[in-house]
């Protein structure tokens, strides 16, 4: 994924891992950024996890990997500054890509 033009991530290249579980598309795919190629963003933990409600409670079976990619690009593009999530310290040591059950999303507008 390449940071969109006229955004603070312009030209930066990020790598994502997308894994489709056997129950896909009933459950969302697991999507996270790979170490070394991840953006510094309010909704991206340093373990690669992305705080995005589409990957958890707002997932619908009619969505696709494409709709997730568009959403991720959109949260990156709408960012005004590069900062870490507030609760990064608690989450950063977790294994990335787990099913986002019971997550509280920082900002459901994104």
């Amino acid at each position: 994924m390449v940071g969109a033009k006229n955004t603070i991530y312009e030209g930066e290249v990020f790598k994502l891992r997308i894994m489709f579980p056997p129950q896909y598309p009933t459950v969302p795919p697991s999507v996270y950024f790979l170490k070394g190629n991840m953006p510094t963003h309010e909704h991206v933990y340093t373990n690669g996890d992305i705080c995005l409600s589409l990957l958890g409670k707002d997932w619908r079976p009619t969505m696709s990997a494409q709709s997730i990619a568009v959403s991720i690009l959109s949260i990156l593009s709408s960012a005004g500054s590069k900062s870490l999530p507030m609760d990064n310290a608690q989450h950063a040591t977790n294994k990335p890509g787990k099913y986002q059950k019971d997550w509280v999303y920082h900002d459901d507008r994104c």
Binding site: Q23, T26, V27, K57, P61, K101
Partner: peptide, 14 residues
């Protein structure tokens, strides 16, 4: 089939 999976997943996960 998809309805079945969808409902079961909702009841089990949510």
């Amino acid at each position: 089939d998809c309805w079945h999976d969808f409902c079961v997943n909702a009841i089990k996960q949510e």
